[in-house]
Simulated assay, not measured.
Amino acid sequence: MRLEDLNYFLAVAETGHMGRASRHLGQTQPALTKGIQRLEKELGLQLFERTAKGMVLTTVGHAFFQRTRAVQIGLDEAVREARDMHLGAVGLLRVGVPPNYADYFSAICELLLRHRPAARVQVTLGLNDQLFSALQAGDLDLCISGQHNPVGALFDQQPLFEDDLHIVAREGHPLFYKASIKFGDLAQCSWILPRTQVVARRWVDARFIEHGLPAPNVVVESNASSSALLRMVRSTDLLTIATASSLRHAGGGGLRPFPMREAKWPRVVGVTLRRGAYVSPLVQRFIELLQQHRPGDLPAPAEPDQSFK
């Protein structure tokens, strides 16, 4: 069995199209077609259904893809480990980071590069679901993430610090002048919130359901995070959600959390790794630096990123 045929198979399976796979690999379509045919002949199996729209994995092909993808990840990690040994453990670090911890990551990365100036770093900004998918696919070494997603047998997690989520408004919001604020009062307001696929948004919606209230009136909705729009919260009576660390940051100035248990969600942030994956010396050193420093311990940048997960 040829290794290049397996690579052709994986590329076609992932793109679902012979033309896109050939462009991705820099190979001709006839080369990919012959490679897939050789592989199917050697296995004695039909791996794809050829359709007018592209290449669709058969049931057997899908099972073979899952196994082969895991083998490819393991091979890539073996190559990386050998290169790390050859280069004196310099290596490459690939990190997934939610937007609201980009400043924290940058500060830790600066510390890392002072000690390992020859190291290379690749950073992917995204939300937990996106980052976990990339981590499972072997495209990332680790994620800095909220540890509220179930990890099952796929991931290992190491807690770093607490960073609770709060419902917030501008300091002069009319609700803060009430003698007693109830959660139902928040249902009378308009909101800036991330879209429903974001965990924090689902938490808010669930809290409304728990109190028998209709869904919040969301007038501004983001596909990533609402705290990139904190400036709007400071100048209007809109409500939103923000982490405790973002409120301590310069970008959280002029905002105030509601003093209610129902307006707060306890939350732990930590490192997530793929279980059983190769952890290079560079990755281990980065994790050690994360464990030694919390966001509040590090100097804030001159122009902070106000986005948040």
Rank of each mutant, 00 (worst) to 15 (best):
R2C: 00
E4N: 02
D5H: 07
L6D: 03
L10H: 01
A11K: 02
A13N: 06
R23A: 13
R23L: 12
H24A: 11
L25H: 04
G26F: 05
Q29N: 07
Q46P: 00
F48Y: 15
F48M: 14
R50A: 14
A52K: 15
L57N: 10
T58G: 08
V60W: 02
G61R: 03
G61C: 05
A63K: 13
T68P: 01
T68I: 07
A70F: 06
I73G: 00
R80M: 04
E81P: 04
A82H: 08
D84L: 04
L87G: 08
A89Y: 09
V90Q: 13
G96L: 02
N100Q: 10
D103Q: 11
Y104S: 09
F105D: 10
C109W: 04
L113F: 08
A119P: 05
L125Q: 07
D129W: 08
D129S: 13
L131R: 04
F132D: 02
S133T: 10
A134H: 07
A134K: 12
A137M: 03
S145T: 12
Q147D: 08
F155K: 05
D156C: 09
Q157V: 14
D163M: 06
L165P: 00
I167R: 03
R170M: 06
E171Q: 15
D185I: 02
L186P: 00
W191C: 06
L193S: 01
V198K: 00
A200R: 01
R202L: 02
V204Y: 01
A206E: 08
E210Q: 12
P216T: 07
L229C: 05
S235L: 11
L238G: 01
T240F: 03
A244H: 15
A244C: 08
S245M: 13
G254W: 15
L255H: 05
P257W: 09
M260D: 08
M260C: 10
L282T: 04
V283C: 11
L289N: 10
Q292V: 06
H293D: 05
H293E: 05
P295W: 13
L298Q: 11
P301T: 11
E303S: 15
D305P: 03
D305L: 14
S307D: 14
